[in-house]
């Protein structure tokens, strides 16, 4: 593997299973941040809480120039629904702050504000690979030395009723759903790192994906995990091709949200010290992205 190593200083895996209600996160935010964010919506609150948890886990002090990269595939769903109903059913204009909050980069704004950052702030998406896209752009800024460190988060919310939310995401009705706000604090120097990582993209076929991993010396410390579109049979084939016997399965715990790759990788870093993870994700065009993580 010839990509450049980059480093992870902290991780925070957060997924909230959603069954019949959406949790109010404001009390937890006030406790963690020591202040309230009165005008924020639930989607933004998810971002604030996840990012601040990640920052609080870090031994390395957060630089004011730390960039913020947020991945999402759905963005603000609940407020967007409300505004649509206001306009087309109630025939009313949206409230100004509700309209501002549906700008999908507002979560990044409040994350930066809550952590006193003055830096790059990007919200990005890509079908099936939203978290990978954000991590790739953040890594690019680190490799080009535009930034020394970044917070990268995967952020998606649910709306009720869940059946409609499943249909909105083209999922079978009844799919177990969650909300997610999982974060990595990454940078380009090894000091205070708890893990290092590499990202391999794009890999346009199964063969290219396997060949990319061919020259790794797999040992018993390696774990394999697959994203939502990789089924059990394919994962077994990959396991056999690479000789990896250990699996790190997070999808059942995380349930489904579009950025649950962020949860899987963050949870592995929190749980598995001194281990290696190959996280392989696949998109609707059968392209692959590999994230390799080695914890210290």
């Amino acid at each position: 593997m010839n990509n450049t190593d980059l480093y992870i200083y902290a991780a925070s895996a957060n997924a909230w299973p959603i069954d019949d209600h959406i949790p109010n996160l404001k009390p937890q935010i006030k406790e963690l941040c020591g202040r309230s964010f009165r005008r924020t919506n639930h989607y933004i609150d998810l971002g604030i809480l996840g990012a601040n948890r990640c920052a609080s886990h870090s031994e390395k002090e957060l630089s004011p120039q730390c960039g913020v990269f947020i991945a999402t595939e759905q963005g603000n769903v609940s407020d967007g629904i409300d505004i649509n109903k206001q306009i087309f059913v109630d025939k009313e204009a949206p409230m100004p702050f509700q309209f501002i909050n549906v700008s999908n980069n507002l979560a990044g704004f409040y994350v930066a504000q809550s952590l006193n950052l003055l830096s790059t702030n990007i919200t990005i998406s890509r079908r099936d690979f939203p978290f990978e896209a954000a991590l790739e752009m953040a890594s690019l800024d680190l490799q080009l030395s535009n930034l020394d460190s970044c917070l990268v988060g995967g952020l998606d919310e649910c709306s009720l009723p869940l059946d409609q939310h499943c249909q909105r995401m083209s999922l079978p009705v009844g799919t177990p759903l969650s909300e997610g706000s999982s974060w990595l604090y990454i940078g380009n120097t090894p000091q205070d790192a708890i893990a290092k990582y590499q990202l391999f993209s794009p890999l346009t076929s199964y063969e290219e994906m396997i060949n990319t991993l061919d020259d790794i010396d797999i040992d018993s410390h390696y774990y394999l995990s697959g994203g939502y579109r990789i089924n059990e049979e394919e994962l077994q084939n990959i396991s056999q091709s690479l000789g990896i016997t250990r699996r790190y399965d997070y999808l059942e715990t995380a349930r489904y949200h579009d950025t649950n790759a962020a949860y899987g990788i963050s949870a592995f870093i929190e749980q598995k010290k001194g281990r290696h993870l190959l996280h392989i994700n696949k998109d609707y065009l059968n392209r692959y992205i590999i994230i390799y993580v080695s914890t210290i």
């Binding site: 999402t72 595939e73 759905q74 963005g75 603000n76 769903v77 967007g80 629904i81 649509n84 109903k85 087309f88 549906v102 999908n104 998406s125 890509r126 079908r127 099936d128 939203p130 409609q164 909105r168 995401m169 579009d258 609707y284």
Partner: peptide
Amino acid sequence: AYPLTSNGFGELLA
């Protein structure tokens, strides 16, 4: 009827 707020932000890319 329920509104869609997006088809996922990858729709135009796709």
